[in-house]
Structures are given as structure tokens and as C-alpha cells.
């Protein structure tokens, strides 16, 4: 198979799909022209990712990388979540085909964008963290 079992599992049964209407931070990355858009919603409580949801327009690996990224950051302290790397996403999925690596980069960027948005809306928390 072109994709690992893990990728197919996350594609077939994506975790944390949907939106959080009262999200504390929302990040959207990618562009429809290139065929991938990821939007990530986070809910923060006590400086931890209390809840996370995603919506993705894209190929199988774009859906799978979004799904696993939400699993990897859920419940994590926000300063740890923001450090999620695309390599960690690839490893957690037991690898991606070379021309699909950009999907893992998008997942990393989506998490960062959501956290960035959270900090923008809650500037005080950022100072506190530092």
C-alpha cells in the first residue's frame, strides 16, 4: 500500500473532526489552490490544550496528519504543544511517502497557527508562560 496502516487508520477514522464554536484559538494554513487546507481549533484550560478539533480539505495524508496532530497535542501543556514538529507527525504515522511530507508540515503549522491565535487573543497568558 501507498500509505502505512496508521495513515489509513487515521484517514478512515479521523480523530477530533469538527469545529469548536467557542474556541480559544483557531489556525488555518495551506491554500485551496494547492489542494490542502487545514483548520485547527483549540480550547485552553490551565495552560493546557483541553480540547482540539480540526477540519481539513485535502488528500488522505492531509486528513491523517491533521488527525494525529490533534491526538499528539490533546491534554498537553500549550508550550509543549506548540513545539510539535512535522517529524513527530511523520513518525507517529509510521512514515509518509516522500511527496506527502508537506502534509506533515501543514499539520505542524496548523497547530502553531492555532496557538498563535490563542496568544493573540489572550496576550496575558503568553507573558505568564514566559
Amino acid at each position: 500500500m501507498f500509505y502505512s496502516e496508521k495513515v489509513m487508520d487515521h484517514f478512515r477514522n479521523p480523530r477530533n473532526v469538527g469545529e469548536i464554536p467557542d474556541a480559544d484559538g483557531v489556525g488555518e494554513v495551506g491554500n485551496a489552490k494547492c489542494g490542502d487546507i487545514m483548520r485547527m481549533y483549540i480550547k485552553v484550560k490551565d495552560n493546557k490544550i483541553d480540547d482540539v478539533k480540526f477540519m481539513t480539505f485535502g488528500c488522505g495524508s492531509a486528513i491523517a496528519t491533521s488527525s494525529i496532530a490533534t491526538e499528539l497535542i490533546k491534554g498537553k501543556p500549550i508550550d509543549e504543544a506548540v513545539k510539535l514538529s512535522n517529524q513527530a507527525v511523520v513518525e507517529a504515522l509510521d512514515g509518509l511517502p516522500a511527496h506527502k511530507i508537506h502534509c506533515s508540515v501543514l499539520a505542524e503549522e496548523a497547530v502553531k497557527a492555532a496557538v498563535e491565535d490563542y496568544y493573540k487573543k489572550h496576550p496575558k497568558t503568553k507573558t505568564k508562560n514566559k
Binding site: 479521523p14 473532526v17 469538527g18 487546507i37 483548520r39 477540519m55 481539513t56
Partner: peptide, 8 residues
């Protein structure tokens, strides 16, 4: 479409 931000 339900999970697509573009559709949204």
C-alpha cells in the same frame, strides 16, 4: 464536505 474548511 462536512470536514472540509473550504466547504464550510
Amino acid at each position: 464536505r462536512k470536514m472540509s474548511p473550504v466547504w464550510d
